[in-house]
Design a protein around this nucleic acid. Sequence first.
DNA 1: GCTATTCGTTACCCTTAGGAAAGTGACTAT
DNA 2: ATAGTCACTTTCCTAAGGGTAACGAATAGC
Lengths: 136, 136
Amino acid sequence: MAAVETISLATCEQDPALYNERMRAMKDAIELLSGKWKFCILLNLYNYGTMRFKDLQETSTGITPKVLSKELQELEENLLITRTVNNTKPVTVSYALTPHAIETQPVINALVEFGLKHRTKIKGNYLAQPPVGTPA
Amino acid sequence: MAAVETISLATCEQDPALYNERMRAMKDAIELLSGKWKFCILLNLYNYGTMRFKDLQETSTGITPKVLSKELQELEENLLITRTVNNTKPVTVSYALTPHAIETQPVINALVEFGLKHRTKIKGNYLAQPPVGTPA
DNA sequence: GCTATTCGTTACCCTTAGGAAAGTGACTAT
DNA sequence: ATAGTCACTTTCCTAAGGGTAACGAATAGC
């Protein structure tokens, strides 16, 4: 019944099949990009362009080599990054975004924007509001 | 160093402080919205408007009451949904999005769009491409 | 031969997410 | 009195995520 005002995503009643498809797509995306580090790595690659393993280890502060290695493998399997071995003195490996990874940019931007807004929202509410959700 | 073409998010070299702020915001958002169910619940609320506990349990196929309860509490703590107890025959509880939750809509839409594109991309690549990432 | 660098892998462990199943408490209907 | 509904809560359990530390292959320098 009465939806939240100004929101009209409601495809569900017009077309349940489309709604289910969108739900499934969202779950796909979540499965693909979930975890603590995937978005972080992608954001770094957006900003710095091609990066080596060690660069990523340094910019993704806190990540361990094992986890970084695994995350990179998963991103590569999903065609979001490319892995290139360079024949340098000690071997180096370069990682870069694929064209397909551009599709994740709106997600990252939206996440960043939400994070920024949420932080100010929460700050503003700490002093202003009583604990919500325990109605009389 | 050449960044992937057509991407110019590169705020990092112009303004490292801004970049760090954006990174932190993204991590905030991930911490808030991570997990298997949060986005699913939000999408359902977008589409159906106000929903009761049992409604959410049915539309979020596969979720158990315990997990649903926990997810709802966390969403409420973060001011994304409201909880209202109705004085009906057997007590019912209504959940609805807060105005602040509108900020998550771009994230959800972006996730859905990415999921849709990724699925067709992966399908197209299954037959067309050799295993990437094992360079000579 | 010894050491350092780079990019990992392997083994081990611990914490958390999340699922299954049953119970609780308030209320209603029969 | 008994049974059912709704919204959880509690208990128990497993699987996965993620951390630490050590090791390995390749190459280079001392």
